[in-house]
Simulated assay, not measured.
Amino acid sequence: MKFKFENLIIWQKAMDFAESINVISSKFPKKERYNLSSQIMRAVDSIALNISEGSIGQTNPEFKRFMGYSIRSLAEVITCLHKAKRRAYISNEEFAIYYEHSFELMNMMIAFRNKIN
């Protein structure tokens, strides 16, 4: 891999998570295509995008700021998952799986951000 962010486990996990969210959001009703489906995809894609963008920055405070954006995007994904469960677009079991992945990724991202000086 040529870019250092590609070696970051949080970036790799964020990329994988986005693909799995893409699969479930494609199953949402057509009426959600421009609403919840679009929102969850923009938010989940933003996680890895901000990690990579911040890693190219010239300063550690700038990278920390972009990690904050990634963390906020993940929080948005979690809220979208709650909405999808409440609207019965995903099952309780699916929600639990994606929630656990979100929780693990959130903890990793916060720990990573806290290590940036």
Score class of each variant (00 low, 15 high):
M1D: 14
M1T: 13
M1R: 14
K2Q: 09
K2E: 07
F5Y: 12
F5A: 09
F5N: 05
E6P: 04
N7T: 06
N7P: 01
L8D: 02
L8R: 02
I9L: 10
I9K: 10
Q12A: 09
Q12T: 08
K13L: 12
A14I: 08
M15G: 01
M15H: 09
M15N: 09
F17S: 02
E19D: 07
S20E: 05
S20M: 00
S20K: 04
I21Q: 02
I21H: 03
I21V: 13
I21K: 02
I21Y: 00
V23I: 12
I24T: 09
S25N: 06
S25R: 04
S26W: 01
S26N: 11
K30D: 04
K30F: 14
K31Y: 00
E32Q: 12
R33L: 03
Y34I: 04
N35Y: 03
N35K: 09
L36S: 12
L36G: 14
S37K: 13
M41W: 08
M41S: 06
M41A: 05
M41K: 15
R42G: 13
R42C: 13
A43N: 05
A43I: 03
V44W: 00
D45K: 12
S46L: 01
I47D: 01
N50H: 11
I51V: 14
I51L: 15
E53L: 09
G54Y: 00
S55K: 10
I56E: 06
I56S: 11
I56N: 08
I56R: 05
G57T: 04
Q58E: 08
T59K: 07
T59E: 04
N60V: 11
P61T: 08
E62S: 10
F63H: 00
K64I: 02
I71C: 11
I71F: 09
S73T: 09
A75W: 00
A75M: 06
A75L: 07
E76P: 03
E76T: 12
I78D: 06
I78E: 10
I78T: 06
T79A: 13
T79H: 11
T79L: 14
T79N: 12
L81M: 09
L81A: 12
L81F: 08
H82L: 11
H82A: 12
K83N: 15
K83W: 15
A84E: 12
A84W: 04
A84H: 11
K85W: 04
K85E: 13
R86F: 05
R86A: 14
R87G: 15
R87W: 12
A88Q: 12
Y89N: 03
Y89D: 03
I90T: 08
S91T: 15
E93M: 15
E93V: 15
F95I: 11
A96E: 07
E100V: 03
E100T: 13
S102K: 11
S102I: 10
F103Y: 13
F103Q: 15
E104Y: 14
L105G: 15
N107V: 03
N107P: 03
M108F: 09
M108S: 13
I110C: 13
A111W: 00
A111P: 02
A111T: 05
F112Y: 14
N114Y: 01
K115P: 02
K115S: 15
K115I: 02
I116W: 00
N117K: 15
